[in-house]
Design a binder for these strands. Structure first.
Lengths: 216, 216
DNA sequence: GAGATTCGTTAAACATGTTCATTGAACGTG
DNA sequence: CACGTTCAATGAACATGTTTAACGAATCTC
């Protein structure tokens, strides 16, 4: 029983072939999905394009949705990595606008797919739900850090709750993105910017009787 | 051609029967959906429960998703109507908490269905997308009005952008709801409350150099 | 190296959402 | 009332996602 532990590189002919077909299927799926959209894409057509049978596709990826995630998860991961990397110093609102624009671009670049992509990301099953949550968590942490730094710079008040602010950012981002893919709003980036602006500004009256630090 | 205009009540035997069948299907669908969930529900089983053939179900409701919407849209509408009705005067945050709790209850009452229900509402096709948007629009207007009133009472600063605040509320609400149905957060109502709190409070430093009325 | 075993692949079977031609009763018309 | 028309309802056919038994080549064991 010379068991190799999970996700370890294999060297045999069989393993190599398997990896190759897996990649071929993935590529065929990505092309087909982006060409005709998720629902219209046909597993037998994807299989044919990859030169395998339909059964093989599902042997590698348990079902159609998993195939979608497998085909496009890495691209989003890479997009996020780049977005976080190239943030620069700038004021907080500029940093967030850049982030919003970059991630929005990921969806905009796949018009036939953006709706389903967002839908199936937000409502994924395990194990993709966990991966997606981890992705979001990474960005969430980064935003919390940005907020802390902005606080240190004096852009935000001291003692800001970075995590809560991160949650607010995601709320705005996804709300705008959903509105956009549903055709209800044409300019998601601008919408996120306006919402963030109001969030940073606050709405309580300047001369409120209640002191700044009000908690129930 | 004695054409009756759309959605006018019909009196003939045929029309009556059709309406009865439609209702029977709707009831069977609602029961079956809430019992086993959307994806696991089977059109032929629903049809059998309603005492008709599978074809008849789709003759009345174009496809499975439309059947879901037809079966549950009215309940949400009614829930929203009641929620808006029983708001009372109270401070803005209390009003919004009550609203959040009521609408959340609608989903909580259908544990097998809440995830799909939210998913298919947010990403519905026409004509349900339009109906859902109209529903949301109604609540949006109501919230904007609440914000104006709060502003008039001195709870919020004068000249508050009620519509933008409404968008922020929906952002928070749906973010928390999605987190909840995905199992990522156990207490959506509390989360919305905290986000609203931060939104109302704002995050800019009290002694900011930039004046209150700052636009890009 | 020969036999046993594993496992990637396949094709056929299956489940289920959807389409469609057919039917017969309700309906309108004279 | 007799006729043609409409249309709700049907069930079979279809499309497609998914399951499964079987095959055969790679791998393992001795």
């Amino acid at each position: 029983m010379s068991n190799e532990s999970k996700s370890q590189k294999q060297t045999g002919v069989r393993a190599t072939q398997k990896a190759a077909t897996g990649q071929a299927v993935l590529e065929a799926a990505r092309e087909e999905f982006e060409r005709v959209g998720f629902e219209a894409a046909n597993l037998r057509a994807i299989a044919a394009r990859a030169g395998v049978s339909a059964g093989t596709v599902l042997h590698h990826y348990g079902d159609k949705r998993e195939l979608l995630h497998a085909a496009l998860f890495d691209d989003l991961e890479e997009t996020l990595r780049q977005a976080l990397e190239g943030l620069g110093p700038g004021p907080l609102e500029k940093q967030l606008s850049a982030l919003t624009r970059t991630v929005f671009g990921y969806y905009q670049r796949r018009p036939k797919l953006s709706r389903t992509l967002l839908k199936e990301s937000l409502f994924a099953d395990e194990p993709w739900a966990g991966k997606f949550t981890a992705q979001v968590g990474g960005v969430h942490g980064a935003i919390a850090r940005l907020a802390q730094e902005a606080s240190a710079r004096g852009e935000l008040r001291p003692g800001v709750d970075g995590a809560l602010f991160g949650a607010a950012y995601f709320s705005f981002f996804y709300f705008a993105l959903i509105s956009w893919v549903q055709g209800a709003h044409p300019a998601p980036v601008a919408m996120v910017e306006r919402l963030i602006g109001q969030h940073l500004e606050g709405l309580r009256p300047p001369s409120s009787l209640s002191p700044r630090r009000k908690e129930r």
